[in-house]
Amino acid sequence: MVTEKPIGATMTDTIQKVQAGLVFLGTKSFDIAAITCGIADTLDRLGERVDERRCVSDTQAILCARHLVCRVRIAEGHPLPRLDDTPAHIVELRVEKQAGAGATAETLIAYLLTTLQASLAPDYVQWTDPRAVLTRAEFRAAVANTAAMPAPMRPKPAAPRPRRNRLPDVEAAYAQLRAKMPGFGKGGAEEARIDALRAAFRDPDPAEATAMAQPDDIREPTAPLRLSVWMMTVTLGLFALPVAVALAIINLLRGENMRLAAHTTALTGMFMVLATHGQIAQAAQLVGVLGG
């Protein structure tokens, strides 16, 4: 649902508002800071540089860019079409964007939901039409291998590389999506919903898909766990500085992982004890015997 109203100093300027959400049937804990960072990264890749991001509370956050404002709210569930049970939580996402400045609000929220559903794993996705509620499986089937994130639209110093312009097609497809959603209760509407959603994304450019491939991220999902990993790394540095430096490099490149930090600390402590009692050679010999 998109609305427009006059803003600014002139009557010709308008602002688009669109809202969607991720639906969770069971209770779940959320990290509003991690969600906010994920949204900011996605907007940046879409060419909308975030100038301000602020967590208002444990359940609300706001992100501001030059031409848009994005609001996130973790709300208690309420009855939704197609669902027999009332969900426990709904992560509501609202984009308010100045019309005519880059991609539309619908395009942006499409990519934001695509990114968030991959990390949060909701049970359902509610699109801009309140009646359009898709299961996670339906959503993933619709956007699998088709929802590639476009490269940043800001100019680059390197020579431009030819690529397909996907955003206009996404915007046109969303106009069709809005037109089809109101009648989804009629015959054949379930398939029409999925077809309309699938049409909102084009196949990615193979060269861009390769360039955007990211290494496996082992980062812990919450800020307290990541902070704990760094505390363990600093503590380890008091006893075995080279090991702590190696662990810190892994934290920076791959992400903070509690299991890796705990195993590293335990092994370091074991070898320190063996070294103190002069038992490293005997331990190595025992390992060789057991391995043989």
Rank of each mutant, 00 (worst) to 15 (best):
D13T: 09
R163F: 10
G291W: 08
R53F: 14
P206E: 04
A266P: 05
I32V: 10
L80H: 03
I62G: 04
D205L: 05
T14D: 09
R226T: 01
P168C: 00
K28Q: 10
A118I: 14
V229M: 07
R193G: 02
P6N: 01
L167P: 01
A110T: 05
A200Q: 05
A110Y: 08
L113W: 00
A266M: 14
D41C: 13
T135K: 04
I109H: 02
A103K: 01
G8K: 07
E138Q: 09
V243K: 00
E208V: 09
R136Q: 14
A283R: 09
E191F: 15
E92Y: 06
R259C: 10
V125H: 03
L267I: 14
V287D: 15
L116S: 03
Q60I: 12
Q214F: 09
T86I: 08
A144P: 08
A141S: 14
L43D: 02
A207Q: 11
C37P: 10
V125T: 04
P122M: 00
N257Q: 07
A137R: 14
G291E: 08
M272A: 14
E106A: 08
L241Q: 12
D169F: 15
R45L: 06
Q214S: 11
P221K: 08
R166M: 11
I90M: 02
I90N: 02
A262T: 10
D195S: 08
V72K: 04
A262D: 11
L286E: 15
L260K: 03
K186E: 15
L267N: 15
I250R: 01
Q60T: 13
Q176D: 15
R166A: 08
I35L: 00
P130Q: 01
Q60D: 09
A192Y: 08
Q19C: 10
R49A: 11
R161K: 14
L80S: 02
L227E: 14
I62P: 03
G237H: 01
T86P: 06
I250W: 07
G288A: 13
Q117N: 13
A147D: 05
A158M: 10
P162G: 05
P168S: 03
T268M: 03
I39N: 04
L227V: 14
A173W: 00
A223W: 06
D217L: 02
I39F: 01
A213M: 13
P215D: 05
V95T: 03
W127T: 04
V91W: 01
L286Y: 15
D58W: 13
V234M: 11
A211P: 05
L236G: 00
I35M: 00
Q282L: 11
R219N: 09
E171L: 06
T3K: 11
L238A: 14
D216L: 15
A200F: 07
L43K: 00
L260T: 05
A88Q: 07
S228M: 11
V50E: 01
I7V: 07
